[in-house]
């Protein structure tokens, strides 16, 4: 059942004031038919409220982006995690075939490098990643600034054509047909 716009606004604004980094999309989902009204109120609030002090992760993410480095790599490295650690967690957390670690690693590295469309990645992948690297989803959305238009085209093409990727066009390690891993990283699960 949709919650009251006033209560949702009040909860978001107080959390924002405390520097807790609430996410508006979560509140709009809870608002049901009141989402439009809540969006206008929250936008008015955010533009008028005190700008909260950034946390260390935000500073690191922005710093990496300014230097043309992948923000997700920076957040992972700050937690002392290797790519293999993340891949292992993904394989276990998603219940994937351990023999396909190389394919998972290939997808994850492309996600880190800004060469995979984050919108195509399944929610359960973000849940596993978010437990290891909080803020992973937003960091992945901030692609490295040197990623050029040609790469962006590749990202869009891949998202629209999972079978083509599975056939090996951009991922030589992949199989002939689309499998669960392709779906988790390309078509939202």
């Amino acid at each position: 059942m949709a919650e009251s716009v006033f209560e949702l606004f009040d909860e978001y604004a107080a959390a924002y004031a405390r520097g807790e980094r609430p996410r508006a999309h979560v509140y709009l989902e809870r608002a049901g038919e009141g989402a439009d009204e809540l969006a206008r109120l929250l936008e008015g609030y955010v533009q008028a409220a005190l700008v909260p002090a950034p946390d260390e992760d935000t500073i690191a993410l922005v710093g990496a982006w300014l230097e043309g480095q992948p923000p997700l790599v920076e957040l992972r490295a700050r937690r002392g995690l290797r790519v293999e650690d993340v891949v292992e967690a993904l394989v276990k957390g998603l219940g994937l075939d351990g023999a396909k670690r190389a394919k998972v690693k290939s997808y994850y590295q492309r996600l880190e490098g800004g060469l995979l469309e984050p919108a195509g990645v399944a929610e359960k992948v973000w849940l596993v990643l978010g437990r290891l690297v909080p803020g992973a989803e937003e960091a992945a959305a901030w692609r490295p600034r040197q990623v050029e238009a040609a790469d962006m085209f590749l990202r869009v093409s891949e998202a629209e054509s999972a079978p083509a990727l599975a056939a090996g066009r951009a991922n030589p390690a992949s199989e002939e047909t689309e499998d669960e891993i392709d779906r988790l990283f390309l078509s939202g699960g």
Binding site: R21, A24, V46, Q47, V51, P52, P54, T58, L61, V62
Partner: peptide, 16 residues
């Protein structure tokens, strides 16, 4: 540091 302070507010406004 200057831009980091605006990272969340700008993202939230753009989404909203």
């Amino acid at each position: 540091l200057l831009l980091s302070a605006y990272f969340d507010p700008v993202r939230e406004r753009c989404f909203l």
